[in-house]
Design a binder for these strands. Structure first.
Length: 273
DNA sequence: AAGTTCCCCTGTTAGC
DNA sequence: TGCTAACAGGGGAACT
């Protein structure tokens, strides 16, 4: 499931591949993907001028619009030199002026795309009205995070996954952030100190930046038309490591459920507050 | 107001 | 072996 680093990889790759391409036609096979009215007619004739990311949202800016995409769990873009033969799971195809096709592929059909009038500050885009600062934005800092959570009765993991506080963390990185911060994700937010928040924010930025670097490294081995999936290899410390020994203390990592998300914890290294 | 639950989907895995 | 049921998960709507 793409989180901020994977989305960054996707947007960077697309920027290098389709910048200044013009959309001459759009074929839609599953229109629930499209959230705004008259999407196809509006986007026809528009060109991909600039590319940005806030949290897990991809933002393609054209002459008139911000074209906003959320990949949710399994959304992927493929660039094809010829019209795809296998249309299974392909829901939207953008025909580009140079003859290539930008294909949106999504097995679970959870992804969404929308078109809004272009704005200078992307945080003002209606698609992002409930989205907090991107995790790499300087405004996502320790005091901001502390002020957002210190009166909350929720647990730490729920706060990390709450995109209205900070945007870009998904289930995998939430576990990794808690591990690196040595805090149990079940800890109550109201019991966390400013020091804890400093550590959490520091580790969040460290992990996300590291993952973006890893993604950037991996992407170079891609052959051009094969696709833009944003997959990358990152060394995980706890997530998916059920029953494996913690690399620090060698106790078994446990799996539990928090906020209906599978959650991995080293209960020895990660303090529950 | 804050927090929780349900729902959207379908490939994969567990259970019989 | 082959079937069905349970499960996974991001985010928004609906609900408490």
């Amino acid at each position: 499931m793409p989180e901020a680093p994977e989305v960054q990889t996707v947007i960077s790759t697309l920027a290098s591949q389709i910048k200044d391409s013009t959309i001459v036609d759009v074929t839609v096979y599953y229109d629930k993907i499209l959230e705004t009215e008259d999407f196809v007619n509006k986007i026809k004739g528009q060109s991909f001028l600039s590319f940005s990311r806030i949290g897990k949202y991809l933002i393609f800016t054209t002459e008139k619009y911000d074209f906003v995409v959320h990949l949710r769990m399994e959304g992927k873009f493929y660039i094809m030199d010829t019209f795809p033969k296998d249309l299974k799971h392909i829901h939207v195809i953008f025909h580009l002026d140079d003859g290539r096709y930008l294909c949106y592929h999504d097995t679970r059909k959870f992804g969404r795309m929308a078109l809004y009038d272009k704005v200078d500050n992307k945080y003002d885009c209606p698609a992002l009205k409930n989205v907090g600062w991107d995790v790499l934005d300087d405004r996502f800092n320790a005091m901001y995070f502390y002020n957002k959570i210190h009166k909350s009765n929720r647990n730490l993991k729920t706060a990390l996954l709450d995109q209205s506080i900070q945007a870009g963390i998904g289930n995998i990185y939430a576990d990794e952030i808690c591990f690196m911060s040595r805090l149990d994700p079940r800890s109550r937010c109201s019991r966390l100190s400013k020091k804890d928040c400093e550590k959490i924010v520091e580790m969040t930025k460290y992990i996300i930046k590291g993952a973006i670097k890893a993604g950037g490294t991996t992407i170079r081995s891609y052959t051009s038309s094969l696709g833009v999936t944003g997959l990358f290899q990152l060394q995980l410390h706890v997530h998916t490591k059920k029953d494996e020994p913690c690399e620090i203390c060698h106790n078994k990592i446990i799996k539990t459920v928090i906020a209906s998300r599978g959650t991995y914890i080293c209960t020895h290294c990660q303090k529950r507050k």
